[in-house]
Structure formats: structure tokens, C-alpha cells
Nucleic acid binder design. Structure first.
Lengths: 116, 116
DNA sequence: CGGCATCCTGGGCGATACTG
DNA sequence: CAGTATCGCCCAGGATGCCG
């Protein structure tokens, strides 16, 4: 982290990850490779087609994931991480590690409240 | 990154960073140490008192920053990163590095559009 | 100086229905 | 199967004004 930037790079990174399901999609595609639309949908209970489509489009527009359409009936569309998308792995990694610690600390805080 | 969790730790990390100004506040406090309310405000042109207050409160509630009130007139309130808050540094670091590359890539994309 | 209370708006997000 | 098309809610975030 050199200087505080005028147009913050951290903002850019945050931008592509913010969205209720985006990081989930990325984690799934990173860990389990190529997935079809409905496979992703099934993996995220609660998400609607509209939202899944939207977030996939946004990630695609950013160049983070790839969309491959098979010309067949019934339709088949596969999504996968791009090379560029893999560059986000350290970021997700850092967030995941912090999240694990955070959850632990939250438990500690709960204990402190209980014992006070 | 071990397994895809039910309650995603990545979500937790994202949660504390999301908010239009939160990461900015954190970067300032990390890099420049303790700051007064109006110092922070001056550093972020465009932010309103309400928003600054709100985001500071949220960060404080998470235990990420510390609020120190001096009993004097005029009032003086100082904000600083907690030890716990410093644990976010690797996350910010990772996002910053990615952001720098991302900006570069976006420029490349612009060039590609121009030359097409 | 460092807030809090109030009002308001945009758009993120969801529910539902329809389609090639 | 993998989407569009509509409608509508909620709330993060902004504008403004008052206060100890």
C-alpha cells in the first residue's frame, strides 16, 4: 500500500465483489471449475434467476468470468473463471482468512457479554 | 480457502468493508494514525457529517476502530484503528494490489476498443 | 466541534410471470 | 434450460436543519 490514491484502487476491487451473490459465484467457480447456470442456481438457495443472470452478466462484463453457449436444445450455458478472474483469488483468500478469525472473535465477544 | 462454507466468512469480511466510505476511513487511519472527526471529513471531499458519523459508528461497533472523547470545550473526538482493525490490513492490501492491476487492465481494454 | 433527527430519492434486490 | 419482462419494496446514502 503506497499512497492514498485519488481514485482508490481498493474501491475498484470492492466494486467487482460487491453484490449479494457475486463472491459466492466466484468461490464456486474457483473451487469447482466450470458450472452450468442451473448448477450455480441450485448451489445458492434463495437466489432468483434474475439475480443470478444479472450478477453473472456483470462479472462477465468485467472480464472475470466466461460464458460459453452451446447451440443445442435444450440450451446449455457454461460459466467459468477467466485467467483474469483468477487474479482475484488472493483477495478472496485474504477475506476468507479474516472472516474465519472474525467469526471466532465475535464468539469471544458474545462470551464477554455473557460473563459481564 | 478450505471449503465452501454455509455461512460464508468472505461475506463477513465484505460486510465490514462495504459502505461507500468505510475502506477510505480505514486506509486513512491505518496510514496516518489517529485523526479527529473534522480531519477525516476534510480528507474525504463529498462526505456528509451524517455519513461519516454513521460509518464511524458501524466500524466502532465492529471493534475495528476506537473512539476517544476528550471532555473539553470545544469538543474533541479522536478516531484510531484498534489492534483488531489492523487485522484487516492484509485484506485491504490484497484489494489495493488487485485494484492497481485492474486499472491497468481497464486501460488496455480501452485501447482495444479504440483500435477495433 | 462533533454530532443527532428528519425527510427524501435511486437503485439493489426480490417475487412472479412469460419465452425460445 | 436459461433466460427476459414487470412490478414493487426496502434501505443505503444524500440534503438540510438543530443542538450541547
Amino acid at each position: 500500500m503506497d499512497r492514498i490514491p485519488e481514485n482508490c484502487p481498493v474501491d475498484d476491487a470492492l466494486g467487482v465483489l460487491v453484490g449479494k451473490w457475486k463472491h459466492m459465484i466466484l468461490l464456486y467457480l474457483l473451487q469447482e471449475g466450470t458450472k452450468r447456470f442451473n448448477e450455480l442456481k441450485r448451489m445458492m438457495p434463495g437466489i432468483t434467476q434474475k439475480m443470478l443472470t444479472k450478477q453473472l452478466r456483470e462479472l462477465e462484463d468485467e472480464g472475470i468470468i466466461q460464458r460459453k453457449v452451446y447451440a443445442q436444445v435444450p440450451p446449455k450455458v457454461e460459466y467459468s473463471i477467466t485467467e483474469y478472474g483468477r487474479s482475484l483469488e488472493p483477495v478472496l483468500q485474504a477475506m476468507h482468512e479474516w472472516g474465519v478469525k472474525h467469526t471466532m472473535r465475535r464468539d469471544v465477544k458474545q462470551d464477554q457479554i455473557k460473563s459481564s
